[in-house]
């Protein structure tokens, strides 16, 4: 379904979920859970938003049944570790490329996706100060390097 305009803030989390549908269903599940919770806070009253959220909830319930034997879904403390490890893995890959001055679309996407996954960690509770810093740094780096490459500049 098309994402209602009111849900612009979660469209990239939903796209990340789609990208991980097969690669890592646990990541897909928690990205959608984050989108569900955030969407309900933004607008669960207007007909188009409510319709979208009901469909998203259907999808989450189906995923939960399909992944019923996966501890990362059954036990949120395991899910928390799974998402945090994945986010840090993406962050460290991008950071290593950055330090090696290898600037390319993949490393930009890794920085950006890791920042989205640090958002997703908030479904488990308050973010640690370290993860707040990681999220800020990753989002800034993704934006900065993307702009440099677009303008033909070399990122410093």
């Amino acid at each position: 379904m098309a994402v209602p305009a009111q849900f612009k803030a979660i469209q990239h989390h939903l796209r990340t979920a789609q990208e991980h549908e097969k690669r890592d269903p646990v990541v897909a599940y928690y990205c959608r859970l984050y989108a569900m919770q955030t969407g309900m806070k933004v607008d669960s009253k207007s007909p188009e938003c409510r319709k979208f959220l009901v469909k998203l909830m259907d999808q989450l319930e189906t995923m939960k049944k399909e992944l019923s034997d996966n501890d990362s879904i059954n036990q949120e403390v395991v899910g928390n570790a799974h998402i945090e490890n994945y986010a840090l893995k993406m962050f460290l890959y991008a950071d290593n490329e950055d330090r090696a001055q290898r600037f390319h679309k993949n490393m930009i996407k890794s920085f950006y996706t890791s920042s989205l996954l640090f958002d997703v960690l908030s479904v488990f509770g308050e973010l640690s100060e370290e993860n707040i810093q990681h999220r800020k740094y990753a989002r800034w780096k993704a934006t900065y390097i993307h702009t440099c490459l677009k303008n033909g500049d070399t990122p410093q």
């Binding site: 859970l33 309900m40 409510r50 009901v54 939960k64």
Partner: peptide, 27 residues
């Protein structure tokens, strides 16, 4: 009509909240 619409919307919103709580085994 307005009040009926509003109560339908809030009932559906409650239903969504309950489904979310059940999904997270928080019921």
């Amino acid at each position: 009509t307005g009040s009926v619409g509003t109560s339908v919307a809030s009932a559906e919103q409650d239903e969504l909240s309950q489904r979310l709580a059940r999904l997270r085994d928080q019921v």
